[in-house]
Amino acid sequence: MENINTEEIKSLIQKWKGKDGNLVMILHEIQNRYGYVPRPVSLEVSKETGIPLARIYEVITFYNYFELCPPAKHTISVCMGTACYLKGAPELLEEIETLLHVQEGQSTEDGQFHVNVVRCLGCCGLAPVVSIDGKIFGKVKKSEIMEILSRYTHEENNVKV
């Protein structure tokens, strides 16, 4: 996680101080800035505004838009539309979940992958379909999953080197 810039948060809060409904606006700015609402930032907001952390989390968890975890590097979407479902998408999802040790809707611990289920990506002819960061993989077989995922982990390794 990147470092939290306390000054930046203070000035952001200053902008909304004393205004009605300011908590949602502050949280919006934070979500836009970091891609999620980091806990240390929530604590800082609580300290600066006097709004209890309990209330801040009530709001964060009430609205789908706000995230409590950093977005993963890659988003995997497994299509569960009718065609993909019949062509074996559940098996693909299971394989992905097993390989990455996550459940649908979760991100891997290292923050590399987020696994989603979606309904129809609009290319039923290619069923079953998996998309990673918007790139479509069609007619995917269970046995190919490992290789597809490794392209992304390798790419990551290359960047690191």
Binding site: S42, A54, Y57, E58, T61, F62
Partner: peptide
Amino acid sequence: WALSFLERGMQTRISPAG
């Protein structure tokens, strides 16, 4: 303010702050 509701709808639950 130790207790609050988190999430919504079917997912609503009581939880200590944050």
